[in-house]
């Protein structure tokens, strides 16, 4: 059993409370991503699970057992650090088996496990190198290998990919996810990068200022954001959150740019990829276009509000042209103007 549960956990540093009563449940074998902007408390939360920090109030349970007072080692978990935390004076092999030596695993067993794990992460030919002689991606693999070789059912990862370049990050995402699934590990993974969360997670817990904003599958967070914060955090470019009144909106053709009935007084959210340029709809002035290859991100203005649209292929915008935006009625999300909470479709009709 390797499920993790946090019950009403708070954490205070001096006078500052950084976590305000958080619940978390990660089932055995689940890949849970803690997502949020920097300073939201996600790393602190991971350190509470690891036992590197102690909770102020609340309980931490692993496999149904209360481990709140236990040391990190007694929680039987592995951890991958953002800086990799490799021991610079030890070679790759010694870095990987560091924990096995601590726990006095027999030499033969140690060697066999090292061989297996090194092959798994593709380090077999680098075992006698020092960390300083490795590239960033290779160091990352050493850190992963050190976490895997322990054969602990739980692995905690604190922004493990943030020091890698974009291409490597993409490869490692796939690799980490594949490792997690083949080994059946429970992973809690901290990141501020929503792409990592969307592509790797079974479940995402989006945090904001020491509170849980929304928990759900990547699909749920994308399709049904509970708040404008979630809506703007998930997706790249982020969802447009608009106030459908004022200049420009009066000339809207409702057939081509539909809005929910309760839109008056509410704010509406429409994803850039759900909007198209057309001959009818909401009249806008085009401002600029970012060409990304497969598509272009076009910035348009309606009144003093900015709308971002994703259009396929290349679109040249000189600035100042007029155009019309159109979208399907299912694509529109409605949010309460003051609380920012989602208004369900059933409530609006």
């Amino acid at each position: 059993m390797s499920d993790i549960r946090l019950e009403r956990v708070t954490k205070r540093f001096g006078q500052t409370e950084v976590l305000h009563g958080i619940d978390l449940a990660a089932a055995s074998g689940e890949f849970v991503v803690l997502l949020g902007p920097s300073g939201c408390g996600k790393s602190t939360m991971l350190r509470l699970v690891a036992g590197l920090e102690s909770v102020t109030t609340g309980r931490v349970l692993i496999g149904g057992e209360d481990v709140t007072e236990r040391s990190p080692a007694a929680r039987r978990l592995s951890m991958v650090f953002q800086s990799y935390a490799l021991f610079p004076h030890l070679d790759v092999a010694e870095n990987i088996v560091f924990g096995l030596r601590v726990r006095r695993v027999a030499a033969a067993d140690r060697a066999a496990r090292l061989r297996r794990v090194a092959a798994m992460v593709g380090l077999a030919h680098l075992l006698d190198r020092k960390p300083a002689q490795l590239s960033g991606g290779q160091r990352q693999r050493v850190a992963l290998a050190r976490a895997i070789i322990a054969e602990h059912p739980i692995c905690l990862m604190d922004e493990p990919l943030s020091n890698l370049d974009a291409k490597l990050r993409h490869e490692m995402r796939i690799e980490i996810r594949a490792l997690q699934q083949s080994l059946g590990m429970t992973v809690v993974y901290v990141t501020h990068d929503q792409t990592e969360a969307m592509s790797m997670a079974d479940r995402v817990m989006l945090m904001r200022d020491g509170r849980v904003e929304q928990v759900g599958t990547p699909d749920e967070l994308y399709q049904r954001p509970a708040t404008t914060f979630t809506a703007e955090f998930i997706g790249a470019p982020p969802m447009n959150i608009l106030t459908p009144s004022g200049a420009g909106w009066a000339e809207r053709e409702p057939d081509h740019a539909p809005l929910p009935a309760a839109a008056s007084g509410a704010r509406v959210g429409i994803r850039p990829e759900d909007i198209a340029l057309a001959d009818h709809g909401l009249p806008v002035r085009l401002h600029a276009a970012d060409y990304l290859g497969a598509d272009s991100i076009v910035t348009a203005r309606v009144g003093d509000q900015e709308v971002v649209v994703r259009v396929p292929g290349r679109l040249r915008v000189r600035g100042g042209e007029t155009a019309h935006l159109t979208w399907a009625s299912e694509a529109v999300h409605a949010f309460d103007a003051t609380s920012g909470r989602r208004i369900e479709a059933s409530e609006t009709q």
Binding site: L52, A73, M79, F87, G99
Partner: peptide, 13 residues
């Protein structure tokens, strides 16, 4: 770096 000590603590050193 303090992470070295934390990494070692997690490993039970």
């Amino acid at each position: 770096p303090p992470e070295l000590e934390e990494a070692a603590r997690v490993e039970g050193a």
